[in-house]
Nucleic acid binder design. Sequence first.
DNA 1: CAAGATAAAGTAATTACTTACTTTCTTTTG
DNA 2: CAAAAGAAAGTAAGTAATTACTTTATCTTG
Lengths: 212, 212
Amino acid sequence: METTPEPGKRAYQSTELRQTATVEAVVQLCAEQDPATLTTARIADEVGLSQGALFKHFPNKSRLWESVAGWVAEQLTSQVFSKAEQHELADQALEAMFLAHIGFIARHPGIPRLMLGELQKPGNGPAKTIIRQTLSRYRKKVVGLLELGIQQRRIGPGIDTEAAAVLYIGAIQGLVVQAMVSGEIHTIEHTAPRIFKLYKAGLQELPDEPEK
Amino acid sequence: METTPEPGKRAYQSTELRQTATVEAVVQLCAEQDPATLTTARIADEVGLSQGALFKHFPNKSRLWESVAGWVAEQLTSQVFSKAEQHELADQALEAMFLAHIGFIARHPGIPRLMLGELQKPGNGPAKTIIRQTLSRYRKKVVGLLELGIQQRRIGPGIDTEAAAVLYIGAIQGLVVQAMVSGEIHTIEHTAPRIFKLYKAGLQELPDEPEK
DNA sequence: CAAGATAAAGTAATTACTTACTTTCTTTTG
DNA sequence: CAAAAGAAAGTAAGTAATTACTTTATCTTG
């Protein structure tokens, strides 16, 4: 598992390396533990460091969380947005984004816990602000693609784009909640295309109210 | 607000009353505070009790959370399911459920924090089990209504009911996440009908893949 | 060898829960 | 039916465990 160092020989590393290693360790740990219960001791142990040494690389726990939030925002947006740009048609771009997002979560099961955990905190901590901005930016990207899709005649012209963006994020959340309930994270990659198909059907705009 | 008792005369109450008062206080507090950071001292203070007195009514904190989870499950299912039974047509029942659920959350903004907080914990604590069972039961109810809707010809016959149930719960989650991001809880009651309209459109089943 | 990385031990604050005792309510009984 | 006895509800202070963060001294390495 770990590169066992010669007994007595410690592997000193630069703060920069330790910082990224620590952030990734936190993301890793969130896959198996509630972020709220993550202690500096547990994190240090995962990195292979004494608890005190952690504070040579981060001034305090809050800043560590800030770095983690930044890492998540960076990874998520870069990985998801890049997939969107590989498609001309807006609806296909949306589908690619959707599946990339779900894949990202499947690869890092701690991410939803992390993001939801931050959002749950009231107030406006720095970490929460980063997550909020990321989600806000994400939402705007989706709205933009939806409007493009309408121009391209791939999406019904009367579609409520704001609502559709909320439902898009909700579709992801629904899969996440289902995974939390069932406890099996990897089912979501299988279910995701079915969910998106249904979501997309709602964007097509039909006959109007069948009742009344 | 409170019936101020004669000074010096304390209002001793039965454990039963204290228990329900405490549970409701916790739900109330979750509207403004992360459940993970709720201390017994803060709870006792809200009830108007010394911290130690709390343990005359609950053997430990874990059992208190169990009671809270039970209260939430009870209230949510009774309020939401009862609305469903007032409608003959399955799609109208689903809409009524949806709006009732959002209304319930708007009246008790702490509920999502509570439920998500529990689901976030790994393992199978008693409180988490209650929430899980509640969501599972909820999901089955939705699937049942969807199948009924197909029989009634209100919903497309080829609809993936399992996926549609996940998306239904996701639609609620999407609204919750939006509220967490914006910080304004009461917008969800306004947005909810727009989201459901979009969701319902996806259940109508159309021409098949427009591309390929 | 100097700058910086690390461990190990320590500290103050917080938290769930306990204990010792007091006050109120309920029940039994002379 | 009052008074005493007992049970239940309350407080206030204490305790052990945990936690984020500090300090001191030692070890690595460019």
